[in-house]
Design a binder for these strands. Structure first.
Lengths: 242, 242
DNA sequence: CGATTACTTGAGGCCTGTCAATGATGGTGG
DNA sequence: CCACCATCATTGACAGGCCTCAAGTAATCG
């Protein structure tokens, strides 16, 4: 069973900007199908070009760069509504990989159609550029966190951001949210060792601030978490959906 | 004396993609003037919107985020050919500041004209998106460096990247390049303390790999520097100029 | 010539990485 | 059904890379 854009469940969320009728009609043509990705699958590979672009419909994944010595830097986490493959679309190849952490359902687009988007639907092109700018903003914030904060603040920031982003796509129920990543993923995102990440999570748990276990995230004290996280106040405005 | 786009000295460099006649004609209209910024001037401020966008014509600057506790993360360094204000253009406000390190000459554009760029010149819109994607690629690489590498590799990476980028805009003469930043700027970019940055630079100098003093960068052994830097081999392809 | 800024160098300590071992869980094959 | 293996989370011990503090030099400026 495939979803069409006119009744896309994501588009109705408050987190995303509105789309006009003609825009929706165009997206119906732009979208070529859907893809189911199993956990552990590599959706896009670093150093390769791709004929397809995606939007995450359901499920979660992560973006990461692999260094030649085997180390790994997690660049970000893919949640529903996220666009995948902008780099492959406008550059020759991807500079990071994207992997499915859970089973994921993805809307698929043809890279070759991207040019018609720019030439015939400037509002959609503008939205795509805004998405790129949002990525840039996030990476700048992540760089500041990894570069300047200590371990407790790093982990707090990550959990705070997970919770906020999951909440924006309606994936928080009764204060709980599914967080299907491994501690190693978080460690690789924050530039910490697995061991130290584990101990920092244990401390947040003991201090009754936040608990993340069995793939489930629970915030016990959002006030203290926000303070520890040095979280920027702005409650992330609406963003475009492709 | 003001430069017009048709004889823009940057456009002729190998580093930048070609521009068609109609594109150049449009840029002439799009460009509203030039601005001279003195060293230390804040060109764009974090948290503020701006009516103007810029392209760096000459001189150098830096982008940085300020944390509430006063710490600072340098997000990147602005060299000739770099576009400034993409975030201000397509989002409500900037999430980082831009400051002039030397005297800078900037091409100025009106933010309100940006929409006509998207609606009437899709090739230019595409280029703008590519620039955003390039920024994203750079920030991803910076995140991996700051998150995963040790101090020696971080500093080596930075010097290697400085040299490569300066070379691409023809600012290297006889193996020397002007690098008008302070050690504190580099430290804040790499997430290192000033003291440790200084000692790491001293070590690279003693080992006859690279010397950076008196605002002048000299590479003595590019082979070893490249190895230390874990530098990605791809010799940065052509990029668009706005 | 005092004040400011930037670079340099040394000493000491802590935050975080590495190493190592254990437990828990789940999948697999005999 | 159980031994076996792989993955992930957890905990302790220890070392080291990097930070902080501090002091000194040099250059620039009003």
């Amino acid at each position: 069973m495939s979803t069409n854009c006119s009744n896309c469940p994501l588009r109705k969320l408050d987190a995303f900007t509105d789309m006009s009728g003609p825009e929706i009609a165009f997206m119906e043509k732009f979208k070529t199908g859907e893809l189911e990705a199993q956990p552990g699958t590599e959706i896009m590979a670093q150093g390769q070009s791709s004929t397809h672009l995606f939007t995450c419909l359901t499920g979660m994944g992560l973006r990461y760069k692999t260094l030649e010595d085997g180390r790994r830097q997690v660049i970000g986490f893919v949640l529903p509504g996220d666009f995948i493959g902008l780099q492959a679309g406008v550059m020759s190849e991807m500079e990071h990989s994207v992997e499915a952490s859970t089973s994921m359902r993805l809307c698929t687009f043809n890279r070759s159609d991207l040019w018609t988007l720019f030439s015939s639907h400037p509002t959609r092109a503008y939205d795509l550029t805004r998405i790129a700018a949002l990525e840039e903003i996030f990476l700048g914030e992540a760089l500041a966190v990894v570069g300047q904060l200590d371990a407790l603040a790093k982990v707090s920031w990550a959990l705070h951001r997970f919770y906020t982003r999951l909440d924006s796509v309606n994936m928080v129920r009764d204060g709980h949210a599914r967080l299907p990543y491994r501690q190693q993923d978080l460690a690789d995102a924050l530039g910490l060792s697995l061991v130290h990440t584990n101990k920092t999570l244990a401390r947040l748990r003991e201090d009754q601030i936040a608990t993340w276990s069995d793939e489930k995230l629970t915030i016990h004290d959002m006030t203290r978490l926000t303070r520890l996280a040095h979280a920027e106040s702005d409650g992330y405005a609406k963003r475009p959906l492709i």
